[in-house]
Design a protein around this nucleic acid. Sequence first.
DNA 1: AGCAAACCAGTAAGCGGTTACAAATACATA
DNA 2: TATGTATTTGTAACCGCTTACTGGTTTGCT
Lengths: 333, 333
Amino acid sequence: MEKQTITIYDVAREANVSMATVSRVVNGNTNVKADTRKKVMDVIEKLDYRPNAVARGLASKKTTSVGVIVPDVTNIYFSSLARGIDDVATMYKYNIILANSDANDQKEISVLNNLLAKQVDGIIFMGNEITDNLRAAFQRTRVPIVLAGSVDEQNTNPSVNIDYVKAVKEEVKVLLDHGNTRIAFICGPMSQAINSKFRLLGYKEALKEAGIPYDENLVFETNNKYREGLELKDQLIEAKATAAMVTDDELAAGVLNGMTDAGIVIPKQFELVTSNDTKLTEITRPTMSSITQPLYDIGAVAMRLLTKLMDKETVEDKEVLLPFGMMKRDSTR
Amino acid sequence: MEKQTITIYDVAREANVSMATVSRVVNGNTNVKADTRKKVMDVIEKLDYRPNAVARGLASKKTTSVGVIVPDVTNIYFSSLARGIDDVATMYKYNIILANSDANDQKEISVLNNLLAKQVDGIIFMGNEITDNLRAAFQRTRVPIVLAGSVDEQNTNPSVNIDYVKAVKEEVKVLLDHGNTRIAFICGPMSQAINSKFRLLGYKEALKEAGIPYDENLVFETNNKYREGLELKDQLIEAKATAAMVTDDELAAGVLNGMTDAGIVIPKQFELVTSNDTKLTEITRPTMSSITQPLYDIGAVAMRLLTKLMDKETVEDKEVLLPFGMMKRDSTR
DNA sequence: AGCAAACCAGTAAGCGGTTACAAATACATA
DNA sequence: TATGTATTTGTAACCGCTTACTGGTTTGCT
């Protein structure tokens, strides 16, 4: 009892016009007389006709789908971006094909190829490490790709971010102003440019301007996991850190709770600043001061940028930096 | 300089075979002589040929894409499910087209139609309120649809869940065992069957067995937002509640922090149990006791079920209930 | 009225694959 | 060697839609 699908032919027959005409009204082509249009629309309505997007895609070479590559949707930083992407995509009649990559080079490439095979019209990539392989794969396709909340030191692709160097620098300065001289820098994988080339730089610059020597023992590289943050307390104490700049909220929550559990009073004895201003910053106790980033907007702007690229509009500014801010909450004095 | 794509024809020509043969080797059809296969594979390799999934989809009427409708990816409960779905989908060579619905009837229906127009092979639906309109739309298509972490009282679609009635009942019993007699039930929209028909029922049953009368004033309906939980403190105090069963972790975090901010010591003066065992339960202080649900697995199993349905395998058990548990943390005594 | 321009609608050739069916080749057996 | 069968491969129709091109109607203007 396969319910057979009705095609453009059925509509054409029923409306006594050619399929070309039906196609025209479906696509809003203006070269159709008003009453013909009406007649066709009525039949479409009556037959509950819905054009087959696959056939359309094949014929027009546009699928109105964009691929979204994300390390892990479960991470609220990325899901926030994804939400912005989806909303704007919907606005422009695109669908998103979402794929988790676990920030794994191999997966990223296989996922990318997969997406390209599906003929997506564009791709939004999140994940901060752009390996040479990946960059090469990016280059090999003519499908526009934009990076969201992710930097590539070589800037081969359009991207939407905030100025991480400056943001970190300013927050570290706040910490310095409070009299801290031993400020820890707790970040994700240094293999990611965003950490090693940008945020760390901001941290160093702030120290430098304050005339405080950079101390490697105050730098902690992690995998951005809550649990890792939790377990950092002893090292932090041993390093005599009195404050920390953390690059991920989950990680920061771990650090916060770990220190608190160790009996350290925050912010009195230890100040902490995090980076992404996700919901988590409000949920922890004490709440966490943070660099504020317009996460949703980063996604939204990236998608908007992508639509322009897909329409072959010329975009002047391919490297968008959105404004950031600082939100003081209870983890700083 | 449009980099032209290479098609199955190019491969056929280059390998001196017909396109049918190429198609066969690409699809792993066994009716191909070993050396022909080799020859074709070499050309595919050499030309870096990747079959056009859209054309394939049109010809074979299978897109290897499944639609995933989710209220909001930003909610960690749903993103956890989504992650399970994606992983299993990838395992079975499917891609997921993700769409946020904001749990809004209108959007859900438009998104559904959209997905169907894209010819997805199946759909996973999350969102607990299945309106008649939506149910009708579900019924109208022959594309298999499974509900993940979402119930429909009328059970018109296969689904994967835990036994919410029982889970809530057991947790409330724990609270009762601790001597609480005024236990609040704080939930999301009652328009969602999962709250009004299942969890509330579990709550009532537990009370009944304990011989405690049901008191409407102890039931709080919200929209599952952190902020709402935060603001519930006065009402909770006024209702003389000494414990609460909460149906969403973000909401619970709000309640927890609200009460704490109001000077109530948890769990000494107020006990709290939440429902989804997401990362949040570990991040709050005190940590939150929770019903444990295999969120990732619910998504994974739902997707696996869907693959069976898409393959037209007969599935005996269309209403999967996964095991749940209880995790005692610091928000209960 | 006559003719060009503007407007509408139809025809048919793809888009890049899958697949039923036919044809060709290989292999086995008598 | 002839014949039957099994195995490979090729041919071509079709999936449902877009769109270039063509031709028929209207409309506007002299």
